[in-house]
Amino acid sequence: MAMMIPYGQRVTPDDRTTATRGLMRPRPSGRALRVTLAGLLAVWFALPLVPLLLWSVANRWSFPAVLPTEWGLDGLATALAQGGLPVFGRSFLLGLAVAAIATPLGALAARALTMGRVPAARLVSAILLAPLALPAFVAVMGLTIVLLRAQVPAPAAVLLLLVAAALPYTVYTMRVAYAAHDLAYEDEARTLGASPAHVLWRVHLPLVAPGLARAAFLAFLVGWSDYVVTVLVGGGTLVTLPLLVGSYAAGVGNDAVVAVLSLTAIVPPLLLLLALGRFGRRYPTARFAGPTASRSPKGSP
């Protein structure tokens, strides 16, 4: 699951900016090329979702018909009848739990690292990013037995592994946020007599809120979309949406149910993404908190 979106940050220049730069105005030939490429890319990104949409409203779609031979909502009905709603709820809770743990831990670590007072900072950074380089199945195969022996309940074990998988995202996102975060605001508030709690609540958190939201979203996605950890470490205690998709995909004639469940799995994160975009825009700091803006601070113009 790869991503680092500068939520709330506009990546396309707005029309006024480009229009005022005479030299930058596109030439007709370049424009044609650009529009063609954009069209191809749009098809590239959107096309795989089309069969999912069609299948989700197809009761019957025999080969080689180009369109469903019988439209209907049987897939949805089956998904609901087979406990789709509680499973959906469970996936959502898992995502929230991962976000609720990994975000504050990541933020704490990031703040300490950014302030530069952590001993062996290189090693610490490397450990925090290492889960990215560890294939999930390796962690699962190794740790299932250890966690079982330690009598860790299955849901807690799943949570632990998923939090570890989410930490690189939250730590990194928050390092970027803290790098752009000016401590002077906090110092000033303190000088003016605000209590530490007050400073945290009224100055510090609001300033890094867009970063926190981004970090939490990424952590949520880790829990929401996981399959391997949930199935092997969870040992069936947690039947989440990807598990249900996996088990239906293992049977013939289930395409409609699989499509409905798949779309259900895509929609909530999309809504969160949209909400994030709006949320980020309300805070002007978001613009400077893009992941890459601070990537090489010394290289900034």
């Binding site: 037995i145 079982l148 009598q151 199935v231 092997l232 039947v239 249900l244 293992a250």
Partner: peptide, 22 residues
């Protein structure tokens, strides 16, 4: 009901538990 993609998944889980003395 715990729906699984294949029956060895279940056996695998039990074997892990046996190995761990669960």
């Amino acid at each position: 009901q715990v729906p699984i993609a294949d029956t060895p998944d279940a056996l695998n889980r039990i074997l892990s538990e046996v190995q761990a003395g669960e």
